[in-house]
Design a protein around this nucleic acid. Structure first.
Length: 149
DNA sequence: GCCAACGTTGGC
DNA sequence: GCCAACGTTGGC
């Protein structure tokens, strides 16, 4: 089993939103590196749910991959914010996955706090200028974050 | 709202 | 294939 971290704007989907829904489609990824990580995910893999572009950026909980990568339907929907005019049903470059709620942390592990953890120094998340929205997490990093809850 | 950092696009 | 211009991300 592998570990990941995925960013979401809580206005779109928050950890509490996912908790309420139980499961959701994770779509709209429009970056090739992030997409390739989506495609590397397997059912059962777990990920840290990160809140970005919000008053309190940080890790807010845990989710699990419930369905492996499939073509992202939002790329084909003209009314979608994520519409890609170059995508066709036959050739859709973008991928989505389905995720399930696992845990909502009692408090958000804030970005500035995560940055203080030497065990997390290698994570793209805490590195200056990194905008990657989907990234792998090592078993050591996973355990370190769990210890901060 | 600002702006640093990065990815993508498109002219050449 | 280079690289300038542009768009986006995302913290602050």
């Amino acid at each position: 089993m592998a570990y990941w971290l995925m960013k979401s704007e809580p206005d779109e989907l928050s950890i509490k939103g996912l908790e309420k829904l139980g499961s959701a489609r994770w779509d709209g990824v429009r970056n090739y590196q992030a997409r390739n990580f989506l495609r590397a995910m397997a059912v059962g893999d777990e990920f840290f749910f990160y809140h970005s572009s919000c008053p309190e950026p940080g890790i807010a909980g845990i989710g699990r991959i419930s369905l492996a990568a499939y073509p992202d339907p939002t790329a084909l929907e003209p009314q979608s914010h994520y519409f890609d005019p170059k995508a066709t049903p036959e050739k859709n470059p973008w991928s989505a996955i389905d995720v399930a709620h696992v845990e909502t942390f009692a408090r958000v592990l804030k970005l500035d706090y995560l940055k203080q953890q030497t065990a997390l120094a290698e994570m793209p998340l805490v590195q200056k200028g990194s905008r990657l929205s989907v990234m792998p997490v090592t078993a050591e990093q996973w355990a370190a974050v769990l210890g901060l809850r």
